[in-house]
Design a protein around this nucleic acid. Structure first.
Lengths: 216, 216, 216, 216
DNA sequence: CATGAATGAGAATTCATTCAT
DNA sequence: TATGAATGAATTCTCATTCAT
């Protein structure tokens, strides 16, 4: 009765790695936009041109998928940091570079902040399952900062006594907070926190803050 | 047939304002724990010794309730700030006091951070509806900080050129970020960020950061 | 805390008959607009400047109220018919007058059609409870029509053999159907069935139909 | 713990078109019996041996389902009319046939009247969404009646000046009204309007009415 | 590997009705 | 008589997950 319209040719070949990657991408976007609870598996399936069954095939369930997304995101930022080769820079400049990088990364990859906030809402239960891997990545970063501080103290460019973890948290925090709260901030302050001008001003202020924190 | 368990005597008199307040309290807790999406109206009704129907009677729907909670939370922190009477303090000490207060408030009222993060996930759509009221509260705070900065610059205790909004954001950020990310942080750094020792260390570091930011 | 605004003086005195009447009026409107199922007791309470408790006080429950409304409506149309004094008119003219009256009544009191349709959806369970009273009213009307027909046959103005009930149903039907289906009709015929022009045309057609039905 | 009652073997294969059709059938019955508001999606799901979720999958929501039912019903009666091939009949006989058909259709498919009454209660909002399709069907019918009238006038069997839409409305109305109000009518007239005898009498009266309306 | 159909357990929301004052 | 608060039982709708092909 109903004439069967020929379906358009399938877009994607049977390539499990590619399908998995597309699902991961779509999930990252969806989780960032809506959080773990608010994300829809149906939406992820549609966005990824896959189908719901595949999510379960590859990731077990929605939480498994969230964990995968989270680990992937964590690895991505830490690896990008490694590529800065801060060890090759003069200590204070290295810290400025790290500050700039952190800001830029958060700006260009807003999913990172959203994912981390979601995970904190869930008391880090997913991250705990992969704590060995993310813990190691984090250690690398702290070690790198510690080495730079040591160099800076030795050269007299940086004051003594700064804890590398505290510094790392501050560098992340001053960038993260502004961007994480860009929507509420724009409302309560009454101007667009994300205009080019506002962003430039904030980044400059943050670099100044770090400079002064390091200064002997 | 069904054995009737004697219900506990009704705890509360018929007082609509009180019921409304109990619902608001319960909702704050629930939204902070689970976010807007994850919060359950049934759970809020139970926690508040009220009835699901009452939520709709007084707040329209779940989002209306969330808005009420958000406005209440915003008002609470801003009013608590007012009670610090920073104008009566010496400028640098005023900023230290504000920093300490912010830290303590976030520690004692963790719902605030959770609510704000939720609201940012939702791109501040709820806050926008009450932007006039929260905007005004925020202006008061910025004006207050500006006045302190002016006094500090005049006395020579504070350097020139610090924007009050940037400073406010930094004071909030260095405290907020650490506490907002306490769960993921504890996992990736491998120690309890909320131990008394860790907290004391962090607060001291934050005060130092602000001190150095203000110093001429 | 909350300043108590003095309420406006109560609009209505404690007059049970008046309150009851206001509720009945409001209920008629609400039931006509939304049907028995769709009507809201809260809305009826508001419309009548009474309160929900009063509905239960006076009418037992929503269905009791519907029955009261139905009986009231039935009585109203039958009483209005009585006031036409058709017995005083020439037979054919009497039928034309009845046709015109029926049309006008339905036009001016659209709630009647809506209530009757609702009641038929509910298989007349409510009307059954008051069948003695409405049955008697209906008998009066049929008797009156029968008398007119007898007079008309005697005078030669009306053909023999027309059943008064069949005639009554036809007179009602050709008017009722058009008005009951005015919304769907306007959609499927593509013009406003309720424009002054359309209404005049329809009434004329209906009178012609009855004329020809009676004609020897 | 809970004794597992063996479920009856699944009755239907996974055939989305068939499931959709079963839901539509069940919905027609349910809407006819209870109206749009009174119909229960749970009941429709049960009747159709489907699942509530499927209703939403295929029809969006309850109103979408109602629209689908309405369009289907409209199409059905208009298509059945087409199958009468009235154009092949002598004009007056064609009108008698249409009158008989209309009566029979309403008797055999009482859901049609119930649906149309429901839709009028809702001011035709659903029909408006599909007005193009139903409008076209209706035009076909009116054109067909107009053609018959023209033929009848030419042959002298039918008087001049009868509007096809008015005639269509009268044919529908005299049948529809009696059947739509069969419950209230049976109560107020005190006899079963749907007995075989009563039905035969009414149909004959209606044919007579149309005959006389057409007669030159 | 892939797909679309199906499901059941909730979730928010609604509403008639009753209670306490 | 009147009122506003409270309630519990539905009711619509949603969603992660599994099944059949």
């Amino acid at each position: 009765m109903k004439p069967k319209i020929a379906k358009p040719a399938k877009k994607y070949p049977r390539d499990s790695a590619a399908t998995k990657a597309r699902i991961l991408d779509a999930a990252r976007t969806e989780f960032a936009k809506s959080g773990l609870r608010g994300a829809r598996t149906a939406s992820i399936a549609t966005r990824s041109d896959a189908n719901k069954r595949m999510i379960y095939e590859y990731f077990g369930n929605k939480e498994g998928l969230f964990e995968a997304v989270l680990e992937d995101a964590w690895r991505d930022i830490r690896e990008a940091e490694q590529r800065l080769h801060l060890a090759d820079l003069e200590p204070v400049e290295a810290m400025r570079t790290l500050t700039r990088f952190t800001w830029d990364y958060y700006v260009k990859n807003p999913f990172f902040i959203a994912l981390v906030n979601s995970e904190n809402l869930h008391r880090a239960v997913h991250l705990k399952k992969i704590k060995d891997r993310v813990g190691e990545m984090q250690s690398h970063m702290i070690d790198m900062i510690a080495a730079i501080l040591t160099r800076g103290v030795a050269s007299g460019a940086i004051r003594q006594g700064i804890g590398p973890t505290q510094l790392a948290i501050t560098i992340a925090g001053i960038n993260y907070y502004y961007l994480s709260n860009r929507h509420t901030g724009s409302v309560v302050y009454g101007y667009d926190l994300m205009s080019a001008e506002a962003r430039a001003k904030r980044l400059a202020f943050n670099i100044e803050t770090i400079d002064r924190l390091l200064r002997p």
